[in-house]
Computed example of a mutant assay.
Amino acid sequence: MSETSSANHLNHLRAIEALYSGHHGWLYATLKRKLGNAMDAADLAQDTFTRILASQVTVIDQPRAYLSCVAKGILINWYQRKALERAYLDALANVPAHEAPSPEAHFMVLETLHDIDAMLDTLAPLVKRAFLLSQINGLKYDDIAEQLGVSLITVKRYMKQAFVQCLMLVE
Rank of each mutant, 00 (worst) to 15 (best):
G36F: 03
A87D: 09
Q62P: 13
I16R: 00
A130Q: 06
C69N: 09
L152F: 05
H12F: 01
V59R: 07
Q147H: 10
S68Q: 08
S6A: 15
A71F: 13
S5H: 11
V109P: 11
A45H: 01
M39V: 09
L110T: 11
M159K: 02
Q56Y: 10
L120D: 02
E3L: 08
V150P: 12
A105E: 14
V57I: 08
V95I: 10
A54E: 12
L152P: 04
R86A: 14
H9V: 10
Q62H: 12
A42W: 01
N94I: 15
H106C: 12
L84M: 13
L89A: 08
R64K: 12
V59Y: 10
F107A: 09
C69S: 14
R86I: 11
A38P: 12
H106S: 07
R129F: 03
A118D: 07
L10H: 13
L67H: 11
E111F: 03
A41I: 02
I116Y: 09
S6E: 13
A41W: 01
A83D: 12
S5A: 06
I74V: 08
I60C: 13
S55K: 00
T112G: 15
I136H: 15
E17M: 13
Y88W: 06
I76L: 08
T58V: 01
G73M: 11
L89T: 14
P101S: 09
A100W: 06
Y66M: 02
I76K: 04
